[in-house]
């Protein structure tokens, strides 16, 4: 199985996990994947998905914004610590 197929399979697996599991389990998994993979951009989609499904009132864009900030920080820190 090549890396692209693995990534697609992982995407659908995490998507099911995000829908079925408590939110704090999903947060741990997404945080781990964002730290493990060099550029895990799928985390922004999952933040957007949470907002589309559950967000209302003052929290309408909380998931999207927090995943954007998380990915940005991880990317910046990775670029700085590499020699």
């Amino acid at each position: 199985m090549n890396s692209l197929s693995q990534r697609i399979l992982l995407f659908f697996s995490v998507w099911i996990l995000v829908i079925a599991m408590p939110w704090w389990i999903s947060v741990f998994v997404l945080l781990g994947l964002t730290l493990y993979y060099p550029f895990y951009i799928e985390v922004i989609f999952f933040g957007f998905f949470y907002d589309a499904l559950y967000a209302t009132g003052n929290f309408r864009y909380f998931g999207l914004l927090s995943t954007f900030i998380l990915l940005s920080i991880v990317s910046i820190v990775r670029s700085k610590i590499r020699t």
Binding site: L53, R60, Y61, L64, L71, S72
Partner: peptide
Amino acid sequence: VIAIITITLILFLGLFLMPNYLRVVA
């Protein structure tokens, strides 16, 4: 950086302009 910002903006616009449609799909 461009990819992250572009995708975030597109998804943000989707949430802003079509929240009900996206909720139906989700």
